[in-house]
Amino acid sequence: MHIRNLLLVFFLFNISVNGLSQGNVFRFESQVGTFSMTDLKDFQERLMPDLGVNVEKVSSFPPYVGFGLSWLTRLNQGMGLGLTSEFFSTGGRNSYEDYSGYYKFDFLVHCFNLGTIITFKNELGGGQRINFEVLQGLKISSLTLREMIFISEPVSDEKLGFKSRSWWIKAGLRYEYDFLDYFTAGVFVGGEYNIGGKLESKENPNNFIFKENGEYVRINWSGLRAGISLAADLSILSSGKQ
């Protein structure tokens, strides 16, 4: 239901801004993000097993690369509006492995961000500019818990899935440089704030993960973002302009 509403907003937004646009830009970008994940780190600690061997936390939600696709239309007076989508993933692992087999407990998380962009352009000349951008929208997160024991052969492999929805907002500066007439390369630096979302079981709705104090375990993607981008001006490409 939420997705259909979102597509409807996207469609109406597209029609309205097309009327005012002086150009449409399609942008692909890759960003490295850091992620708060405070509750999940505690949760990972709680699930450290006592197997008699030294099970270690080999990974605990480290910064990782995410990807984004945006569509942006440039309005007058250096302002731009657009729609964006992002994908980020990270995770944690409690693990022990030796010659005889392994034990792994993975906490794999990813999220899809769907939202809008508003940019304010400041031309520097020579095909260079600085943009101030603000992005916000709906975040759909997923957590997969997977415990595996393998000793000569799989001993156990169990999975549990959880989902979450929340709101996010991101702001930052983007330096862009035009090249080859229709392409623009960019570098982005900014940060994201995210209201942590409750994690609900996919298999058993209304079942959540709780902390020891009874509060919900929330997934929180807040953190810094930095990355590079490549944009193409679709209006120039489609008109064949040199």
């Binding site: 061997v53 990974s59 480290p62 993933s89 492995e97 990813h110």
Partner: peptide
């Protein structure tokens, strides 16, 4: 990078 994060392994 790859698309989805894969936690690393550590062998004792």
């Amino acid at each position: 990078s790859s698309c989805i994060y894969e936690p690393p392994d550590r062998i004792t």
